[in-house]
Design a protein around this nucleic acid. Sequence first.
RNA 1: GCGAUAGUAGCUCAGUGGUAGAGCCCCAGAUUGUGGUUCUGGUUGUCGCGGGUUCAAACCCCGUCUAUCGCCCCA
Length: 425
Amino acid sequence: MNKPKTSFAPPRGMRDFYPADMRQRNLVFDAWRGAALAYGFEPYDACVVESLDLLQRKSGEEVAEQIYHFEDKSGRRLALRPEMTPTLARMIAARQGALKFPLKWFTLAQCFRYERMTRGRKREHYQWNLDIVGEAALSAELEILAAAVAALKAMGLTDKIYNIHVNNRALLAELLAKSGISENHHAAVFLALDKRGKTGDDEIKALLEKEGLPAQAITETFNLLAVESLEQAAELAGPESPAIAALKELFELAEIYGISANLRFDISVIRGLAYYTGIVFEAFDAKRQFRAIFGGGRYDNLLTAVGGAPTPAVGLGFGDVVIMEIINEYQSATEADKRNGVIVGYMFPEQRCSAMRLADSLRSQRCNVDLMLTALKPKQFFTRAGNSSAAEAVFIGPDDVERGFAYRKDLATRHQREIALSGRT
RNA sequence: GCGAUAGUAGCUCAGUGGUAGAGCCCCAGAUUGUGGUUCUGGUUGUCGCGGGUUCAAACCCCGUCUAUCGCCCCA
């Protein structure tokens, strides 16, 4: 009899969450939900399986290679969603007449992507999506950025640990146009600018030459790369630039929100994706050791892409993988193992009923109770209690039942106080 | 999809052809009423998986899986 050996590991790029992992994950999820609700976003959810057609419409046919897709038994071409944005666009377009704009929606979405993994990237992850749809004012960008900062704060990450790099796609378009680079070359230039810091200037130059840009335009582009400050960008763009005005307003408003310490103007933030139209942003850890923490921006063509009416929108995507790595890197474990609840044990079978009654009484007071399933020796019980996530331990022996009270021990401080056994108050 | 490196106890790792090891953890006892100290004893094991070479493989060879890093791509 030989059983087929099955691997205990989850499929490539997929993740299991053991209770210890869930504690960490919940820390992140709670921060996300809390911040979203605090900033007035409403929760929504949607199906994980989408029609392949919808997902392809946005980014082109080749994206199918990076999507988990399949046919159902009726031959429908379906896929696991790689991101939430197309689904959001579909849902909003479906009820565009009924919904009251602007809307502020959020979700915690599990997304899948079939591709090679590196650190901070899996084939499956959870992403906090925050979107404001139907508002052209910069207030929308601010609310989203402030909510993201609030979430990071709730995770215990201080201002010093991360920076939010902000740019405006409209600014880049203005500057490139001034350099005489026509719009059909913009995508390639964006790509080259996006590589700054990763690749050498020679390689970037080679990319631009390959795109067929004249030498002078390449020089101009490198002048853009050298832009370090908003003032410098303003000089290049001229006093009438609406893109500069938008950035200036953004930084002014950020002051009022108290998040300006984290914001940096950074002309290299492009966000690869074609659909961004205005302000774009990306957050990184201060040491630039990890991938982007979150990213997003304004994409005013969202709904037209799925056949809806033109609608301005701002969105943010914030994945769980990178932030968990950063929390582990920058933060001691203390925040993650907050103790909670009471663990209740007893010495002999004779005390089982007392222990059960106590557990019942505590539970009725909305206290989480882990009741031991069998009698344990004191040492066994307290070892177990200390290793558990419980905040307090109550151990019941014959003497306690006799006396009518036991001791409720704080497992962190080891202080004890009395707790009544018989009463049900 | 390509390239490099790695995989041995719960964890960190040593072992480079000849009886699978150390530290920490865990378990039991000292201690039939109290978990961070001490002492004594004990288990740590599909050596990632499958095949090959060999008298003999954790070690060499081939394949494969997984992880990490780089390329690519993005969230």
